[in-house]
C-alpha cells in the first residue's frame, strides 16, 4: 500500500493547531485562574481553594436551581421528542411537513426565541391577554416574576425550542424498530402500551442515551434562555451555573472566582454524562 505522504498532515496540522490554541490551551489556563483572584485587568495572585469554599458557602442555591431546570428540561424534551416521533413516524400524510414545522424552532437562535417568549409571558403580554379573553383571567399572573412559574417557563421555552431536534433523534431510532416486531407482539396479545414498553422502548435504548446525555449537557450549560427570559431572577431565583458564572465574571469582574465556578460546572457536566451513559447503556450482550 502506498504511504500517504505529506497530504494528510496538511489537513491535520491546521485543525490540531486551532484546537490547541482556541480550545485546549485557554481551557487549561482558565482552569489555572480558578485558583487566583484575577480581575481581568491586573496580575492575579494565588488564593488556593478560597474561591471554591466561597462558592460552597454562598452559591449552592444556584446548583439546586440548575439541577431543577436540568431535570425539568431533560424529562420534558425527551418525552416531547419521543411523543412527536411516535406520532409522526408513520401514517399521517402530512407528516413530512409537520416534521419540518416542529424542527423550525430549533434552528432559530435561542436568544431570539427567549426574547419572543419574554414578550409573550410579560404581564401585559399575549398569554395573559388570551387567558383574560377566554375567561381564565384569574390564572393570569406575572409568569416571569415568581420563582416557580419562572423556572417552569424557562424549562417550557427550552422544551418548545428543542423538542423538534429530539424528535429527529427518536425518528432515527424508530427506524430500527421494525413494524413486524410490533405486529408479532400485537398478535401475541400485547396492547399498545405494552408494545411500547416491551418492544419499542428497549429497542430505542441507543437513541435514549443520546437524547438524555445531549439534553443534560445543554441543561447544565444553560445561559441564553435564562438570561433573556428572567435575567436570573426574580431575585436570583432562576440563576443557573451558567448565568452565575457570567455575572460574577463579566459584570462583577471576578474572573478568578468565575473560573472556579466554571471549573466546577465542567466537572459536573462530565460526571453527569458519564453516569447517564453507564446507567442507560445497561447490560451489553
Amino acid at each position: 500500500m502506498k504511504r500517504p505522504g505529506a497530504v494528510p498532515w496538511l489537513f491535520v496540522v491546521p485543525a490540531a493547531a486551532l484546537t490547541l490554541l482556541i480550545l485546549l490551551v485557554p481551557s487549561l489556563v482558565g482552569a489555572a485562574y480558578a485558583f487566583t483572584d484575577w480581575d481581568g485587568l491586573t496580575s492575579p495572585s494565588w488564593v488556593g481553594l478560597a474561591n471554591f469554599t466561597e462558592f460552597f458557602d454562598d452559591g449552592s442555591h444556584v446548583v439546586g436551581q440548575t439541577l431543577i431546570l436540568a431535570g425539568l428540561y431533560v424529562v420534558g424534551v425527551n418525552a416531547a421528542g419521543l411523543g412527536l416521533a411516535l406520532g409522526l413516524a408513520h401514517t399521517l400524510r402530512t407528516r413530512h411537513v409537520l416534521r419540518a414545522l416542529f424542527l423550525v424552532p430549533a434552528v432559530v437562535s435561542p436568544l431570539v426565541v427567549a426574547y419572543i417568549w419574554t414578550f409573550i409571558l410579560d404581564v401585559d403580554g399575549p398569554l395573559n391577554e388570551i387567558l383574560e379573553a377566554v375567561g381564565l383571567g384569574s390564572s393570569a399572573q406575572p409568569w416571569l416574576g415568581q420563582r416557580n412559574t419562572a423556572l417552569a417557563a424557562v424549562a417550557i421555552v427550552m422544551v418548545w425550542q428543542f423538542a423538534g431536534y429530539h424528535m429527529l433523534i427518536y425518528l432515527a431510532g424508530l427506524q430500527g424498530v421494525q413494524r413486524e416486531l410490533l405486529e408479532a407482539a400485537e398478535v401475541d396479545g400485547a396492547g399498545p402500551w405494552r408494545r411500547f414498553a416491551d418492544i419499542t422502548l428497549p429497542l430505542l435504548r441507543p437513541a435514549l442515551v443520546i437524547g438524555t446525555v445531549l439534553s443534560t449537557i445543554s441543561a447544565f450549560l444553560l445561559f441564553d434562555q435564562v438570561m433573556a427570559l428572567t435575567g436570573g431572577g426574580p431575585s436570583g431565583g432562576t440563576d443557573t451555573l451558567g448565568t452565575y458564572v457570567y455575572e460574577q465574571t463579566f459584570v462583577n469582574g471576578r474572573y478568578g472566582y468565575g473560573s472556579a465556578v466554571a471549573l466546577l460546572l465542567v466537572g459536573g457536566v462530565c460526571l453527569a454524562a458519564l453516569v447517564q451513559m453507564r446507567l442507560l447503556r445497561g447490560r451489553r450482550s
Binding site: 421494525q178 413486524e180 416486531l181 405486529e183 408479532a184 407482539a185 400485537e186 398478535v187 401475541d188 396479545g189 400485547a190 396492547g191 416491551d198 418492544i199 428497549p202 429497542l203
Partner: peptide, 18 residues
C-alpha cells in the same frame, strides 16, 4: 388480534432481538 387468540409465524421470523 389479541382477542382472536391466533398465533402468527412471520416470513422474517420477527424474533424480538432484545
Amino acid at each position: 388480534p389479541r382477542l382472536r387468540d391466533v398465533a402468527m409465524v412471520f416470513q422474517n421470523y420477527a424474533i424480538y432481538p432484545h
